[in-house]
Computed example of a mutant assay.
Amino acid sequence: MIDVRNLSYVYNPKTPFTSQALFDVNLKIEDGDFFGIIGGTGAGKSTLVSHFNALTRVQKKSGTVLVDDMNLSVKKIDLKKLRAKVGMVFQYPEHQLFDDTVEKDVMFGPKNLKLPAEEQKARAKEAIELVGLDYAEFAQRSPFELSGGQKRRVALAGVLAMRPEILVLDEPTAGLDPVGKRDIMNLVMRVKQSCPTVVMISHNMDEIAEYCNKIAVLNRGRVEGVFSPRELFGSKALLEKCGVELPLVTEIAVELCRAGVNVNEAILTENELVDELLKVMPRAVENA
């Protein structure tokens, strides 16, 4: 689905402000993956994913990016075709809103594809309802009058109206409270039924552990490796090498073990933690 080969990228080349963001990056994202990308600030995560729909162009002799049958390393790219295939939702996507009604904002992408007016409207209605907003209630409202969570849903609807096959999310839950974070991730999982491949940048290791089947770890522009959640979070040496923290639920399990509660330290999700606690509770009551 996405094949990155020996990709490097330099900001401000041949100037005193030259800064290399990516070094010889190689990774493959396959159809149906929920692919996580993690790393510290400045690791190159956003620079990497911005190549996937050519917001950042592959520099000459600096590697190759393939999206299905499209080679993004060549000079001429069918950008409309590419951006209909790869939808990008930026960090704080509510800042992308610009039109005077929700419907017009969501219709922007289909309109740029020069689809018939009826198709534009149908796609907007479909996308607005897909993100959990009532079309009749929200279509003619100003997006700037909505709550933060509603604005984020409208911004996502604008991308989904393009009917992408790949959805790229840059910190989709940044700045939200715990309930808002859960709502957005539940929404992403619902969207994944129609947009099968999801790429997500996140600093939230609980989200990465719960939702991703593969995780690429970036460190100062280089890929340290691509791992399953259990490979990554189950190896102390690997975590230390990559500078990755444990998910909160895993830290809780570790602390419970230190306190003498016999639970599995390798749990990765809230549901697994609850299951473990339910297993040990009868024994804890008996011992008390």
Results as ranks from 00 to 15, higher is better:
198 V>K: 03
185 M>K: 07
90 F>L: 05
268 L>G: 01
223 V>W: 15
138 F>D: 09
71 N>H: 09
184 I>H: 07
64 T>V: 05
19 S>Q: 11
50 S>Y: 14
206 D>H: 11
44 G>N: 13
281 M>I: 02
68 D>T: 14
172 P>V: 13
192 K>H: 01
48 L>S: 15
19 S>T: 11
5 R>T: 12
61 K>Y: 13
251 E>W: 00
29 I>G: 10
45 K>G: 10
260 G>C: 07
104 K>I: 14
177 D>I: 12
144 F>Y: 05
43 A>H: 03
61 K>M: 12
81 K>Y: 06
252 I>N: 00
267 I>M: 09
207 E>L: 04
206 D>N: 09
238 L>R: 00
254 V>P: 01
243 G>T: 06
29 I>F: 10
142 S>T: 13
184 I>D: 08
278 L>F: 10
265 E>Y: 00
84 A>Q: 09
88 M>I: 14
265 E>F: 06
161 A>N: 11
110 P>W: 00
107 M>F: 04
264 N>C: 11
159 V>M: 00
75 K>M: 09
258 R>F: 04
203 H>C: 07
238 L>C: 01
235 S>W: 03
170 D>C: 04
163 R>N: 15
2 I>W: 02
67 V>R: 06
227 F>K: 05
94 E>P: 03
252 I>F: 01
161 A>I: 09
57 R>V: 09
98 F>P: 03
90 F>D: 02
233 F>D: 12
25 V>P: 02
35 F>Q: 11
125 K>N: 05
54 A>M: 13
20 Q>F: 06
126 E>Q: 15
159 V>A: 00
208 I>D: 01
241 K>R: 15
240 E>I: 06
68 D>W: 10
66 L>P: 05
160 L>W: 09
50 S>V: 13
33 D>M: 01
88 M>V: 13
254 V>S: 04
191 V>G: 06
255 E>H: 02
137 E>R: 13
131 V>D: 11
232 L>I: 10
106 V>G: 14
33 D>S: 00
147 S>I: 11
90 F>R: 00
269 T>A: 04
264 N>K: 10
